[in-house]
Design a protein around this nucleic acid. Structure first.
Lengths: 155, 155
DNA sequence: ACATTTAGTTAAGCATGTTAACTATATAGA
DNA sequence: TCTATATAGTTAACATGCTTAACTAAATGT
């Protein structure tokens, strides 16, 4: 990386961002379906929308949470009518998920919401080259790997 | 910014990292005192170490959580022997906090712990040029600014 | 002095995750 | 083919770290 002051700067920024996001995390929003969806609920909806017919295990890896958590979360989302669970006859073991019509509304609602945030982000960040993008990915991946290794964060 | 796939990739990585940190928050660690301290416990210890003799209300503002949460947290930390609560005779209403000797050990332990994580991060990320470093800062700053503007995150 | 504000505590509850123990299905090797 | 093992998912019990609401006690101001 670099000398200490730089590391500290990244670390401080990182922690501050996380705290701000965290504060926010607790607020549920209506993404156009009339339901109030919590952060992790809409995230799951988005993950399923982007990866139709993924099974539970993949979803768990994708989102970085336990299969148990996914199982509970998807159960709740089925009850709320945002996603559908199905098993195809070829594979009676795996459960797959897809969005319900209502789920698609929430999906689009969230995308609009995102689009606004991306626009803001773009205004704040400016255009990035391919190289710059890969550096960011590299940085975040290192972050994730460090997290995986240490078995715990240092938020 | 750029085309969609890149945005998605960053977004997914980001969410996964946050989830992992979150999961992690629940794991306790020994910072050299023989006690297992949870993330928010050590954070409180750090905050008190950096701001000796703050009262509960200030601590609550400082950490951005409710007075109730602070009250519960500090209660636990007193039981664990990491901090001390005191009221000075001039003011029987406010409670003030300071680190116990054991708390100071944890404080230092946490600082060392940070150093180790930096080292791991360095191993995973490699050296960065000045330009690369500033790009990361630019990215994170944009992230923070975007968050500030929208008045709420979208984790 | 009494009413109001301020500081802190406590109880109950919620969102989100975990691990451990479980069932059911798929697969690979004798 | 039969059986052992690995894989997919579920469930129960619990942990963490917050919240709000209702409370007590001390300080303040009129």
């Amino acid at each position: 990386m670099k000398e200490k002051p730089d590391l500290l700067k990244i670390s401080e920024l990182w922690i501050r961002i996380l705290n701000k996001m965290d504060a926010d995390e607790k607020m549920a929003k209506d993404f156009g379906t009339g339901d109030l969806l919590h952060c992790s609920e809409i995230h799951t909806v988005m993950a399923i929308g982007k990866n139709p017919d993924t099974n539970l295990t993949s979803l768990s890896l994708l989102l970085g949470i336990s299969k148990s958590a996914i199982s509970q979360m998807t159960g709740r989302l089925v009850v709320k009518g945002l996603i559908e669970k199905h098993r195809d006859s070829k594979n009676e073991k795996e459960v797959r998920f897809r969005l319900s019509p209502k789920g698609r509304i929430a999906y689009l609602g969230h995308e609009q919401h995102h689009a606004k945030i991306y626009a803001r982000m773009h205004r704040n960040l400016g255009d990035l080259t391919d190289d710059e993008f890969s550096l960011i990915i590299r940085f975040l991946s290192a972050m994730e790997k460090t997290l995986d290794e240490s078995g715990h964060g240092e938020k």
